[in-house]
Design a protein around this nucleic acid. Structure first.
Lengths: 225, 225
DNA sequence: AATATTTTGTGATATGTATCACTTTTTCGA
DNA sequence: TCGAAAAAGTGATACATATCACAAAATATT
C-alpha cells in the first residue's frame, strides 16, 4: 500500500507540491475498488463522503432530468469523478456508472479538503479543473441543443475515436439507446442515422465494432448537421 | 475609495477571513465601472485579465454555438461573472452583456489569484461556488433538452418572478427573441405560447409588463410540458 | 416630430424526429 | 446450451416546432 498514491495520476499533476505528510494522509485514507461494466459508482441522491478518482476504465455521468435519466457525458480515466457533486453538495446530484470495467480510488472527503486547504498548488489545480469543466459543459450544452441529431451523433463518433479510443476503429461502449440519450434523440433515430452513415460509406459497422472510413465527411456532418 | 471593498458583497461572504492586507490589495487593484443596458461586459474571444464581479444589475451570459449565439442563463447581482472563463482560460470562452443598467467591479486577476492562494477560506468558498454552478449547469441543460418549449418558457417566467424580481409582477428584461434563444425555441413559438398563457388566464401582459395570475398552473406546465 | 429600426403578432406550410408496432439479432444468466 | 431478456433494425404515422411571409406596434435615432 505504501507509496501507492505517489504513482497515482490522482496526485501526479500536483505531486511536486504535495508534501510527504500530505501524501501520507492520502495513503491512509483511500480505498481502491474494482467495478464491472454496468456497476454504479456514484448514485444520485446518496450521501457523498468520498472524492472519487477514476484510475482506469470508462464511465458515463448521468443525471435525473424532469422526464428521464440523461447521460451528460462519458469520462475516461484518469480523471476525478463527481468533484462538483461531492464538494458542492452533501448529496450526490448526479450518478456515475461504469461502461467498461474500471478501477476507482475513493478518498475521504475531509482528508481531501484538508489537503486542498493546506496546499495552494493543489487547490489552484482543482479550481482550474472545475473552471475548465464548467466551460466544457456550457459548450456541450450549446452544441447539443443547436445541432440536430445527425451532427450530434457525428460528434459522439468523433469524440469516441479521437479522445476515448484514439483510433479510427473501436467498439461502441454503449448501446444505441444510450447514444440516443446522449444526443437527445430516440434509439430509433440513432439507428436510422447510423444506417445512413453506413450506406454513405462514412462508417463501417459490424455489431458494435465501428470503423470510421471517412472522417472528413463526419466532420462536415458535425459542422453542418 | 478606502474601505470600498469592505462593504462589497464580493468579499462579504469571506470577509471574516480576509486579512487587512488582502483587503488592501483588492482596494488598490480594482475598478468599478457602470454599464448601460445592452453594453457588453465580457466578450468571448478576448483576453481576460480581470475577475469580474457584478455589484448591481442584471446580465445575460451567452456563448457562440455551432450555429448561433445562445443565451446560457441570466445572472443577477451580486455575483461573480465569468469566474470559469477568467481562471479557466486566458481567452474568454463566453460573453456577458448587461440587460439592465449594471455596476461591475473588475479585479486584477493576479491579485485575485494571490488572495485565493493566501486565503484558505476564500478559496474554499470559490471552489464551492464553482461546484454548485457546474451542478446547476448540468441540471439546466437536462431540463432544456428534455422539456418542450412550453415547459421551458414556464420555467423562465417562474425564475424571473421568484429569483430575479421576487414579485408576481415584473417587466420582461429581454425580448421575446432572446427568450426564445434561452429556451431553444424560435421567437414565433415564444410569442404564440405567451399568447396561449394569456388566453388561458395564467398570465397578464401589457407590452413587456407581465403579471403571473396563476402560478400553480405555471408550475404544472413546467412539470408536464 | 419624423423616420428608421427593432420588436411583436399571426397565419400557412415544411420538416425533423418521436412514437408505435413488430421482427430479428445478440447477449446474458441459469 | 437453452431460454429469456436486451438490443438492434425498419416501416408507418403523428406532432411539435421551425421557417417563411407580412403586418402592426413599439422603440430608438436624428
Amino acid at each position: 500500500m505504501k507509496n501507492e498514491c505517489l504513482n497515482c495520476a490522482c496526485v501526479m499533476r500536483s505531486m511536486q507540491s504535495l508534501k510527504n505528510c500530505q501524501l501520507e494522509q492520502l495513503e491512509n485514507n483511500h480505498a481502491v475498488v474494482q467495478f464491472r461494466k454496468g456497476d454504479s459508482i456514484i448514485k444520485q441522491g446518496m450521501f457523498s463522503t468520498n472524492v472519487v478518482f477514476l484510475k482506469s476504465g470508462l464511465v458515463k455521468i448521468h443525471i435525473t432530468g424532469p422526464y428521464h435519466e440523461q447521460i451528460v457525458r462519458l469520462a475516461k480515466a484518469p480523471t476525478y469523478l463527481g468533484l462538483p457533486t461531492t464538494i458542492g453538495d452533501k448529496i450526490n446530484q448526479y450518478s456515475v456508472t461504469a461502461v467498461q470495467d474500471s478501477e476507482v480510488c475513493f478518498i475521504d472527503l475531509n482528508i481531501f479538503k484538508r489537503v486542498l486547504e493546506e496546499n495552494k498548488d493543489f487547490s489552484s489545480y482543482i479550481i482550474l479543473e472545475l473552471c475548465k469543466s464548467e466551460l466544457e459543459s456550457y459548450r456541450r450544452c450549446a452544441s447539443r441543443t443547436q445541432k440536430q441529431t445527425r451532427g450530434n451523433l457525428a460528434d459522439v463518433l468523433i469524440d469516441l475515436s479521437e479522445n476515448v479510443f484514439e483510433s479510427d476503429e473501436f467498439v461502441l461502449p454503449i448501446s444505441q439507446s444510450d447514444i440516443g440519450n446522449l444526443v437527445d434523440a430516440s434509439r430509433e433515430s440513432v439507428n436510422r442515422l447510423l444506417s445512413e452513415l453506413m450506406n454513405d460509406g462514412i462508417i463501417r459497422m459490424e455489431g458494435r465494432k465501428i470503423e470510421i472510413l471517412n472522417k472528413n465527411s463526419l466532420q462536415l456532418i458535425s459542422q453542418n448537421g
